Amino acid sequence: MTLPDPVLATPKLPLDQDGGPVFSEPWEARVFAMTVKAHENGVFSWSEWAETLGAELAKDGDGACLGYYDHWLNAFEALLSRKGVAAAGQLQGLRDAWDQAARATPHGEPIELKR
């Protein structure tokens, strides 16, 4: 995978030997893709993104408390709220619903939100 230079300059982005991003879980790839797509659609500049992510990463010091993509998700939500795309409470409600659905889903089954 070839990423644009600004994406490659993202703070602490884990890359494999071919220069592609590394993900441990499917949700990490999804939030990465949503972030790139939001940028491509003009929601924010990549420099705004890098600054927001950098500030989020700095909150954790050595990075021991949260995983990289947990910080990524927090930064993405913060930027969406700041840009007026989604309210912080709305995003927290979605996060809570996903957490509850994940806990209620047997291992190996797809997680589904109830409507």
Rank of each mutant, 00 (worst) to 15 (best):
E40N: 13
E28S: 05
T52M: 10
E40A: 15
N41R: 12
W27N: 14
A29F: 06
H39E: 13
E51H: 02
A33S: 10
T35G: 01
L53F: 05
S47Y: 00
G42R: 09
A33H: 03
T35Q: 00
G54Y: 13
F44T: 05
V22T: 11
A38N: 09
F23V: 13
A55H: 06
S24A: 07
T52I: 01
W49F: 12
F32L: 05
V36F: 11
A38Q: 14
F44A: 13
A33P: 00
P21E: 12
S45M: 08
A50L: 14
L53S: 13
V31S: 08
H39C: 04
P21I: 05
G42A: 07
E25G: 00
V31L: 15
L53Q: 10
F32T: 01
G42L: 10
G42I: 02
A33E: 12
L53R: 03
H39D: 04
G42E: 07
S24G: 01
E40L: 05
G42H: 08
L53V: 06
E25N: 08
W27E: 10
V22R: 14
S47V: 11
T35W: 01
A55C: 01
V22K: 13
V22E: 11
E40Y: 12
A38G: 02
K37I: 03
P21D: 02
N41F: 09
T52S: 13
K37Q: 14
A38V: 04
N41C: 07
A38H: 11
R30A: 14
W46E: 09
T35Y: 00
S24D: 10
H39V: 01
A29Q: 15
T52L: 01
R30F: 14
V22S: 07
T35D: 00
T35L: 05
W46S: 03
V43W: 10
T35R: 00
L53T: 04
F32W: 13
A50W: 09
V43C: 09
E40M: 15
E25T: 07
A50C: 14
P26A: 15
E40W: 00
P21Q: 04
